[in-house]
C-alpha cells in the first residue's frame, strides 16, 4: 500500500540523511526533555502524569510572554542571549512551580488511593489546564519571533548539511540540562534520595528520607525540564497554541516508555530515537502519518522488549 506521495528514491535518502539526522536530533532533544519528566515522576510515584504535556505547553506560553515583553517593535531590549536565557529560566521556574501545585492539590490527596484515582485526576488536570489557557488566551496560534533574536541565516554550513543556530541551541541546551540532571541524580544527596524513593518508598522513609520533599523536588525538576522543552520548541518551531501539549505529551510519554519507564537514561535515549524516527518518517515516507509513527514504534518495541529498551525501573511488589 503506497500513499500518493511516493517514497523518495535511495540517492536522495543518502543525500539528505545528515540533515535529517540533525533535524531528528533537534526534535529528539525536545522529546527527551519531556520524557524525562514523565520518567522521573513515574519512578517515584508510579503515576502517569497526563498533565505533563500541558505543563510543557504552559512553558511555551511563558517563554512567549517573556519574549514579547522584551522585544518591543524596535527590537530586543537586551542581547538576544540574555533574553533567551531569561525565557528559559522564567519558564522553567514557572513550570516547576506549576508542577508542584499540581502535585500538592491533585495528586497528594490521592497518595493512598487505588491507582486509578490519580490517573483520572491527572486527566482532569490536563483538561483543566488546556481549557483554562484556551479561555484566557484564546485558541489563537501564537508565534515566537525567533528571527528577532537569532538571524534565520545564522548557523554552520557543514557542506553535507546545515546546522542552523536555532537547532544548535536546542540540542546544546537540552544536552546541558541532561548533563546537569545526571549530575544531580548521581552525585547529590537529593538524587540518591530520589533513587531510593523510586525503589522502595517505605524503606526510604524509614531511612530518614523526607519522601514528600523528594516528591516535590521531582515534580519541580521534571516540570522545569518540560518548561524548557516548551521554550525550545517555540524557538525552533515557533508555533504555540493551547492544544500543543497533547501531541507532544503523548510523544514524550511514548519516548519514556520506549526507553523503559522510570529509567532516566532510557528517557533520553527514547526521546532521541523517537525524534529521529519521526523525522525520517516525515522526510522519507510522508508527513501525513507523522503522529502515528510514535505509536507504531512504541508498539513494535514493546512487543519485542516489553520493559522498554533499557528496562523499566519500577519497584516490584509481589
Amino acid at each position: 500500500m503506497h500513499t500518493q506521495e511516493v517514497g523518495k528514491p535511495m540517492d536522495i535518502f543518502i543525500a539528505t540523511l545528515p540533515q535529517q539526522i540533525i533535524n531528528g536530533l533537534t526534535l529528539g532533544a525536545v522529546y527527551a526533555l519531556i520524557a524525562l519528566g514523565y520518567s522521573m515522576v513515574y519512578g517515584v510515584l508510579q503515576l502517569l502524569n497526563f498533565a505533563h504535556g500541558d505543563v510543557y505547553m504552559v512553558g511555551a506560553f511563558i517563554g512567549y510572554g517573556v519574549m514579547m515583553a522584551f522585544i518591543p517593535e524596535s527590537g530586543p531590549l537586551f542581547a538576544p542571549v540574555i533574553i533567551i536565557i531569561l525565557m528559559l529560566l522564567v519558564a522553567m521556574l514557572g513550570c516547576g512551580v506549576l508542577g508542584i501545585v499540581i502535585e500538592q492539590f491533585a495528586y497528594r490527596p490521592l497518595r493512598n488511593s487505588p491507582r486509578i484515582a490519580p490517573l483520572i485526576s491527572a486527566l482532569g488536570v490536563s483538561f483543566f489546564i488546556q481549557n483554562a489557557i484556551q479561555l484566557t488566551l484564546t485558541a489563537q496560534f501564537r508565534n515566537y519571533e525567533t528571527e528577532k533574536l537569532i538571524a534565520p541565516a545564522a548557523g554552520i554550513d557543514l557542506g553535507f548539511a546545515r546546522l542552523s543556530a536555532t537547532r544548535a541551541l536546542v540540542i546544546v541546551t537540552a544536552i546541558v540540562l541532561m548533563i546537569v540532571l545526571q549530575y544531580l541524580i548521581k552525585r547529590t544527596r537529593l538524587g540518591k534520595a530520589m533513587r531510593a524513593v523510586a525503589i522502595d518508598r517505605e524503606a526510604a522513609a524509614m531511612m530518614g528520607v523526607n519522601v514528600d520533599r523528594v516528591i516535590i523536588f521531582t515534580f519541580f525538576i521534571g516540570s522545569a525540564l518540560a518548561g524548557a522543552a516548551g521554550v525550545l520548541t517555540g524557538i525552533v518551531f515557533t508555533r504555540v497554541w493551547h492544544f500543543m501539549g497533547f501531541a507532544a505529551g503523548l510523544k514524550g510519554f511514548t519516548a519514556a516508555v520506549l526507553g523503559g519507564i522510570g529509567n532516566i537514561p532510557g528517557a533520553m535515549l527514547g526521546g532521541f530515537i523517537l525524534g529521529l524516527a519521526e523525522t525520517f518518517a516525515v522526510g522519507f515516507i510522508s508527513a501525513t502519518y507523522k503522529d502515528v509513527v510514535a505509536f507504531v514504534v512504541l508498539i513494535i518495541v514493546l512487543l519485542l522488549r516489553p520493559r522498554g529498551l533499557l528496562g523499566a525501573r519500577i519497584p516490584q511488589k509481589v
Partner: peptide
C-alpha cells in the same frame, strides 16, 4: 504489558485510529 503500559498503548491506538480515518484518502 505492565499495567500502565496498557494505558499508553491503548491511547496510542485511539490516536492512530483518528489519524488513519483522517488521512487514508488517497490510497493506491
Amino acid at each position: 504489558l505492565l499495567g500502565d503500559y496498557l494505558a499508553i498503548v491503548t491511547l496510542g491506538f485511539g490516536q492512530i485510529f483518528v489519524q488513519l480515518m483522517t488521512s487514508l484518502t488517497r490510497v493506491s
